[in-house]
Nucleic acid binder design. Structure first.
Lengths: 192, 192
DNA sequence: TTATATATAGACCAATCGTTATAATTTGGA
DNA sequence: TCCAAATTATAACGATTGGTCTATATATAA
């Protein structure tokens, strides 16, 4: 395994597993098994250990999702349509693996919730990532003529709504909740 | 420690810790320390072990929160007002302990998210609890003249929105997100 | 080709984990 | 008061955890 691949493969495996199962329920041995990398390499490439791996996984995932967000917000001029298509995209990403619903890039809800009280470094990383997504939403809404105040309120709520409905979707083992919140977007964006 | 107290104290401690830190980041030794109960008693009273403890904690917490929901939904005839007051109540429950924001009865977001893929029994318990809360919301909305379809869509979204904003509030260490979603309730409930 | 830096590989570590086992103590009822 | 059942108390268990360590292999530069 080449040096570039090893680090990358570990980060990919970690990203997937942390987002799926959370930080505490994912062991480094599991990440190594999935990535095929040797244990010594993990601490060589990530001297900060499991926590550094998680922080980088959050950032990587945050960037990927920001890319998705940009694509959808840029593609549609109308804010309602843009947000609805984004949510439709997320809902469409769910796939069934071994009978379980699984999301390749899971939003941050789980990691944020589980680290909020027990890991300050990761809490901050999550906060920054949410903040990055939120500014993308604010930018789009301002562009569409929403007041500064309104853009902020809607954007925070949009983050909450999407994270919450992903959790609900995973709990219920159906992407139904995401499809349902999509129907409410017109009402949510009705006041400027 | 009397027999009734022992079981109860363990369940209380478990409820608080599981909801605050999640299932996987809470150890049974920690629960025992906080409750003052001896280890043998834990397995005596909860023969299903940690998992049974968590399931009962979810149910207990779900009932307590259902009580809060009922109080607020019954107190106000107007749906917008009822939901806003409920959210205000949740936001008002945050308190600062050792500089960290802490919620005595935390909604289910964390437990639901972390168990969805790794513990079927707890996933089901979470699903049932969400379902119970959701029917309270549906009932109120139907009473207020919303269509069956609309009541369902709004209720699912309300669960998602509250869970998501609690996560955001804990991540950001401020109840600001909850206060922000409260402002959007009129828009959210604007279509019947 | 050789020397040096980088990365791998896997054994080992102490601590923690959830659970079990068993003896002792307490409680409740006759 | 006595006895059986309930509960407590605590040591021990096997498994897993994240991390350390050291020898070796590979990559790079001269």
């Amino acid at each position: 395994m080449s040096k570039v691949q090893s680090r990358e493969k570990m980060l990919e495996a970690a990203t997937r597993l942390f987002h799926l199962k959370g930080y505490h329920a994912t062991g480094v041995n599991q990440i190594l098994q999935e990535s095929g990398a040797p244990k010594g390499s993990l601490y060589y490439h990530f001297p900060g250990g499991k926590e550094q791996l998680a922080a980088e996984a959050i950032q990587l995932s945050g960037q990927l999702i920001a890319g998705d967000i940009r694509v959808h917000l840029d593609k549609y001029e109308d804010a309602v349509q843009a947000f609805q298509q984004l949510i439709q995209f997320i809902a469409g990403q769910f796939e069934r693996i071994d009978g379980l619903l699984e999301l390749p890039t899971v939003p941050l809800g789980l990691l944020a919730a589980e680290t909020a009280q027990v890991n300050e470094h990761l809490r901050q990383t999550c906060e920054e990532t949410f903040g990055m997504w939120e500014s993308l939403y604010i930018g789009k809404l301002l562009q569409c003529g929403y007041s500064d105040e309104r853009a902020r309120v809607i954007s925070t709520s949009m983050i909450a709504l999407i994270e919450g409905s992903v959790t609900l979707s995973l709990t219920r083992n159906t992407n139904g909740p995401l499809l349902q919140i999509r129907e409410l977007i017109p009402a949510l964006l009705s006041m400027k």
